[in-house]
Amino acid sequence: MLKSFGKTALLVMDIQNGIVSRFGENEEVLLPFQKAVEAARRNNISVIFVRVGFSEGYPEVSPQNKSFSAISKFGGMTVSDAATQIHESVQPEPNEPVVTKYRVSAFAGSTLEIILRSRQIDKLILSGIATSGVVLSTLREAADKDFALTVLSDACLDADPEVHRVLTEKVFPRQADVLTVDAWIDTLENGVG
Rank of each mutant, 00 (worst) to 15 (best):
M1D: 09
S4K: 06
S4P: 00
Q16F: 10
N17E: 05
L30V: 07
L31A: 01
P32V: 04
Q34Y: 00
Q34V: 15
E38T: 12
V47W: 00
V50G: 03
G53D: 06
F54K: 08
F54R: 08
S55E: 09
S55L: 07
G57N: 09
S62F: 03
K66W: 11
K66I: 12
F68C: 04
S69F: 11
I71H: 01
I71E: 01
S72P: 01
K73D: 11
G76I: 12
G76F: 11
T78D: 06
T78N: 05
D81C: 14
T84R: 07
T84Y: 03
H87M: 14
S89V: 13
Q91D: 05
E93G: 11
E93D: 10
N95R: 12
T100Y: 06
K101C: 04
Y102M: 09
R103K: 11
S105V: 15
L112P: 09
R117T: 15
K123R: 12
G128A: 10
I129M: 05
T131I: 13
T131A: 09
V134G: 01
V134E: 06
V134F: 05
V135T: 06
S137M: 13
R140D: 04
A142N: 10
K145N: 12
L149P: 06
T150Q: 02
L152Q: 07
D160S: 03
V171S: 10
Q175T: 09
A176P: 03
D177H: 13
L179N: 08
I185D: 00
T187S: 11
N190Q: 13
V192H: 09
G193P: 06
